[in-house]
Simulated assay, not measured.
Amino acid sequence: MPTSIITTDDLRDFKMELLDDIKKILAKQATGSLKKYLKSSEVMEMLQISPGTLQNLRINGTLPFSKMGGIIYYDIEDIQKVMRKNRVHHITE
């Protein structure tokens, strides 16, 4: 595998691209143009979980959902609320 040399200019360019991407995401969120409801496949991809895990979250009441025409939808705010509620602040071993 060939070796690439990364310069400080390359890092600066990467930083600027990354900041631009973050600004775009924040702007979308502020204007409300981000999706409010996600389908199961989108939630599984976002949380990196399996279909079975998502089903368990529904069954045990951890993650609220709506079902219309056989398609299950999840409110993005509910997902964020569950993530905040289950945040681990300190682990002691």
Rank of each mutant, 00 (worst) to 15 (best):
M44I: 00
R12C: 12
V82D: 05
M46C: 09
G52N: 04
E45I: 01
K85A: 08
E42T: 01
Q48R: 06
S33K: 15
S66V: 04
G70T: 04
P64K: 15
M16C: 08
E17Q: 12
L38C: 12
D9S: 05
L26V: 11
V82G: 02
P2V: 10
V88C: 14
K67C: 14
T7P: 01
L18K: 07
D9I: 05
I59M: 02
G70E: 02
R12V: 13
N56T: 02
D9V: 03
L26S: 13
K36M: 11
L34W: 10
D21M: 13
E17P: 04
K39S: 15
Y37T: 01
L57A: 06
H89A: 13
H89Q: 13
R84T: 07
G32V: 15
I76A: 13
K15V: 05
D13A: 07
H89V: 09
D9Y: 09
G69T: 06
L19G: 09
K23V: 08
M83R: 12
T53L: 07
K81E: 06
S41M: 00
V82K: 09
S4P: 07
G70L: 08
K81I: 06
S66G: 02
R58V: 05
K24L: 09
F65L: 10
H90E: 11
E77A: 10
F65M: 12
D10H: 08
D75V: 06
K23E: 08
K35C: 12
I49F: 10
V43G: 03
